[in-house]
Write a protein that binds this DNA or RNA. Sequence first.
DNA 1: GCCAAAGCTTCCAACATACGGAATAGATGC
DNA 2: GCATCTATTCCGTATGTTGGAAGCTTTGGC
Lengths: 273, 273
Amino acid sequence: MTVDDAGAKSSLQRGIAILRLLAEANEAGARLTDVARALNLTPPTVHRILKTLVEEGMVEADKGSKRYRLAIDLFAMAARAGNPNNLRDICRPIMLRLSATLRDTIFLLVRSGFDAVCLDRSEGPFPIRSFTGDIGGRVTLGIGQGSLAILAFLPEEEREEVIRFNLPRMQGVGILDEVYLRTEIARVRDLGYASRSTGLLPGMSGVAVPVLDREGHAVAALSVGTISERLNEERLPVVVDILRREAAGVRNQLNPFDPVLRRPAAVLGSGAA
Amino acid sequence: MTVDDAGAKSSLQRGIAILRLLAEANEAGARLTDVARALNLTPPTVHRILKTLVEEGMVEADKGSKRYRLAIDLFAMAARAGNPNNLRDICRPIMLRLSATLRDTIFLLVRSGFDAVCLDRSEGPFPIRSFTGDIGGRVTLGIGQGSLAILAFLPEEEREEVIRFNLPRMQGVGILDEVYLRTEIARVRDLGYASRSTGLLPGMSGVAVPVLDREGHAVAALSVGTISERLNEERLPVVVDILRREAAGVRNQLNPFDPVLRRPAAVLGSGAA
DNA sequence: GCCAAAGCTTCCAACATACGGAATAGATGC
DNA sequence: GCATCTATTCCGTATGTTGGAAGCTTTGGC
């Protein structure tokens, strides 16, 4: 019953499973036997794998050799991952501009499976709470404005798949039922943005627009998170307008070779001289 | 001759090597044969490992199955890594405060081996260039103010080790020779901060203070990056003072159990019911 | 301070897995 | 359309991985 013990075979998979577990453990870290127990592995096996991971710089062992946690090297390596279509690079100046102009916190979200992941955020002066939280944070697709904006503009089959999968996950977080969710999605598609203070986080509001690709499908969302009083009826349309403009700008910068995308682009150094 | 072909054995190591390579490749990604060539592996081996990595969600394969790149899941997982001693959590509000107060960009750097890694940054309104660049960025320890602040306040043996290792790496980036570097380090130790426009990045200046642990050794650095005219003789001491105050605040929030650190802290759920 | 218990590490023989050559299928480009 | 390069499948082999057992270290109780 512990973890899904059907499957994990290769040492690579075990290694990744351990990394996952250590990610869960966050800064608290985990001890060797914790890991062994949680993953149904024997201590020697865990020991060997952890040793490898430490040698490779993916995991750090605490001084007293007691606790293991993810290493900064892993962080630095993976930081280069969150940039699909160069989205993060493209959006960074835009986000800076937005947070400076709007004086609110801006989020960049992309889809990852059935979640939205926060790729970047640019802080405004107003402290806020949000679902996505920090960079790397995840939310169920459909919860929160940015996340909803992406969901609403997914290709139809994908959208249906996500809805089917996510409905059960949304219990008790404000999504009442399928009808409600579908109504919301239709609304967002209609308006072109997601706003509406859901009341899920008291006093917090947000508004998000999708970033679309050439086919009109969402690749990301630009989202503003702020305190409710800053998104009144007067300001909302202004904010939406600005967001839209920027999102359109991003769309134009997305790799223009899309349909065929036979673009070799810069390639690795050969390694050899 | 390509890569260091002495060593790589286990599939875990190969998997990690591939992840590293894909990190290098950035958004461009790499094809199967690219990887095989660069790592001296046979295509079937690479194929198998990549397949596993894709299944595990660490790597994404491009539609046409042509190019592989790091997946967002990896990004999200590793985002939980960059928080040693809860530093990032502790520093986030401080950095927000600093960037709001100073209206400049603030960096949080920590040491990772012989480099400094940017854990977090909080943007100010003035666009800047820096060595560390984005979150996850690395610099050689000793280059740039934040990095230098850390180096200067490392325990002596470690400092010496880093100096020895890094001197060759500093060729042509403004560190003239060992004497110069040591003078700088002494200066920083003496003043308690690193400033001095190195002139390496024209028009850019910065100032950094170390974040010290109980023993007085650097665990991180708080750094301000800005345009040179904003760090004149009048403003510099003000900025330094503010930075110092905040760094001292961080120091007090660092886990107070340090000397013995027998703190179990929150532990993983048992997994089994 | 001692002893018991739990955790960590080393060793090694049995085993399973990952390996890579060869051959096939699929792209790409000339 | 053919030649070349790339991706994928197959399979016998060898290599790396496994986990029991046992030693060693740390932790915790008394």
